[in-house]
Amino acid sequence: MTTPLVSMHGLSRAFVSSKGMFGESRTMRAVDDVTLGLPAGKVTGVVGESGCGKSTLARLALRLIEATSGSVSFDGVELGGLGPAEMRQIRRRMQMVFQDPYSSLDPRYTIADSLLEPFAIQGLMPVGATRKERVAELLDMVGLAQSTASNFPHQLSGGQRQRVGIARALALKPQFVVLDEPTASLDVSIQAQIIELLERFQQQFGLTYLFISHDLSLVRYFCNQIVVMYLGRIVEVMAAPDARPQHPYSRALLESTFAPDPAKRRIVQPLGGEIPSPFALPPGCAFAARCANVSERCRRERPALADTDAGGRVACHHPNR
C-alpha cells in the first residue's frame, strides 16, 4: 500500500450538550479514537448511518473543527500544531466539497465571484484578463456553459451548483479533497454525472479523496478503501472495494442495499433493537444490542480493531471470516 497522505491517530471529538441552566451537561463522543491513513492518490470511503460521526470525521481531517484528542497529519505535517498563517497556507492543498449545493454558495456572489474566492483568500488573485480566463477554465473543466459565470446560485439547478462547488474546490489544485456526501441531495441521474466528474479528476490530477456517504453500493463502486463507522467508532476497514464484510454491522448495511435487479431480491433480516443513545454508550461493543451473533463478552468488553487476513481491520469478537 502507498504511504498515507493524511494520517489520523487516536482522533476523538466530543460534543457537550447542556440541558439548560440546571440540567446536567452530557458528553457525546461524535468521533471516538479513530486511527486511519488515507493512501495518496486513492479514494477512501467512509460509510455509516446518520449520527455515526462520518461528517465530524470529515471536518476533523481538515481541521475545520478542533479535535478533543488525537492528531491529524497532512503530508507529514501535524495540523494541530500550525498557527493561522501556516494553516491558511496548507489549506491550498486540501479542500472540501459539501453535501448541500444549495447553501454552499453565497447567494449574493455570482458564480465567477465564487470561483475566484479561493484565489482571493489565498492572495493569489489573478489580475487583468487572466482572471476571466481562470473562471472560463474552471467552468469548462466541470462542463458548465461560459454564460454561467454571471449567474447567481439560485439560477442554477442542484447538479450545476455542485459542479461549481467542485470547480471551486479544485481551483487551487489541491492534493486532498474531502467529499462530504456530495450527491446525497441530488437525483440519481445527476448523482451519476457528478461521480463521473469526480472520478475523472481523481485520475487526471492523482487526487486523494475522503468520500463520505451513506450509500454502501456507491462507496463500493467509487472507493479503493472502505471504512465503516458506527456510533463514532470505526467498526471495519476493508482494504478492497469488493472485500467481503466481516463485521455484522457492515454485513447488515450491505444486505440493506437493494440491487437494481429483481433476480437479487432478498428477505431482509431486520436488525433488532434500537441504536443506543450516543450520550450513553454501552460499555462493550456499541453494536451489541442489535447484533444477531452477540455474546456475553460483546456486552462487557469493547472489541479492538484487529487486522484481518484480507488486509483490512475489524472490531468484532466474532467476525464472520
Binding site: L64, P84, R91, R92, S103, E117
Partner: peptide, 17 residues
C-alpha cells in the same frame, strides 16, 4: 451555520473575510 461560511473557512479565510 450556512455551508458557504464553512466553505470559506475551508479555503483558508480568516474572521475578517
Amino acid at each position: 451555520s450556512e455551508t458557504y461560511i464553512e466553505a470559506t473557512i475551508a479555503m483558508g479565510a480568516g474572521s475578517g473575510h
